[in-house]
Simulated scan of single mutants.
Amino acid sequence: MLKKVFFLWIVTAGFSTAEVVYSPAEIQRVRERTVPSIQSVMWQDIVPRLPSEYRARASDVKLIFPERGPGPMSFYAAPARQEIHLPLTSLRFYDDIATLHAWFESRSCPQEYIQTYLAALLRADENLPAPLVAFGLDRDKLFADNYTYDLSGKIFSSGVQFLLAHELGHILLDHRTGVEGAESQRQEAEADTFALDHFARLGGNPMGIFWYYQAAWWHDPASEKGRRENSHPVSAERIRAMATRLMDNPGEFAHGEADPAREANLISQLGMMTAAFADLIDDDSFLNWIAPAMFNDFPVSNLRNSCPH
Rank of each mutant, 00 (worst) to 15 (best):
N305V: 10
N296D: 07
R139A: 03
S235T: 15
G256C: 03
P66D: 01
L246N: 07
I10L: 12
R240C: 11
G181Y: 11
I10D: 04
I64V: 14
I290R: 15
L202H: 06
F156E: 00
E252T: 05
A77F: 12
H85Y: 13
Y147S: 02
P260D: 01
D259F: 15
L173T: 04
V61S: 06
T193C: 11
A293S: 08
P66I: 05
I290N: 05
A222C: 11
V179K: 14
E237S: 12
V35T: 08
W103S: 03
S285K: 14
L280K: 12
F194T: 00
L172Y: 12
H255P: 02
E53Q: 15
S158W: 10
G251P: 01
A77G: 05
T12S: 07
V20W: 05
R33H: 13
E257G: 09
T17I: 07
P24D: 00
T17D: 05
R238V: 01
F104D: 00
L88P: 11
G226K: 03
E190G: 03
R176V: 10
K225V: 15
C109L: 15
S59K: 09
G136C: 06
L91K: 10
E257M: 13
Y94K: 05
W289V: 02
G159E: 02
S52R: 14
P221R: 01
E224H: 13
L88G: 08
A56Q: 11
R240W: 14
A130V: 01
W103N: 01
D248V: 04
R304I: 15
S268M: 13
I171P: 02
T12A: 11
I46E: 04
M73V: 06
R33D: 07
S268W: 15
D279C: 13
A293R: 01
R29P: 08
S158H: 07
E263Q: 13
E188K: 03
Q115D: 06
Y147I: 02
L142T: 00
E224I: 12
Y212F: 15
S106T: 07
T12W: 06
N296A: 12
I114L: 13
A261W: 15
Q111I: 12
R228G: 07
L63H: 13
R107Y: 14
A120N: 06
Y113C: 04
R31P: 01
G251H: 09
P110V: 08
F75V: 00
V234G: 00
Q82L: 14
D220H: 11
Q214T: 12
F194N: 00
R240I: 10
M242R: 13
E224W: 14
H85F: 15
D284Y: 11
D96C: 10
R29M: 12
W9N: 02
P206W: 07
A80Y: 14
P72N: 00
A120Y: 10
R29E: 10
L173H: 07
N288C: 05
A254Y: 11
L163Q: 04
W211R: 06
A144Y: 14
N127Y: 01
S231T: 09
A258K: 09
A222T: 08
Q187R: 12
P87S: 04
H101E: 01
E167T: 03
S184T: 05
L172M: 09
F135A: 02
A182T: 08
A261T: 06
G256D: 03
A291C: 06
G159V: 04
Y212M: 08
P206T: 06
K225Y: 14
D192R: 12
S223K: 05
H101M: 10
A182C: 06
R304E: 08
L164T: 00
D282C: 10
T89M: 02
Q82D: 04
N127F: 01
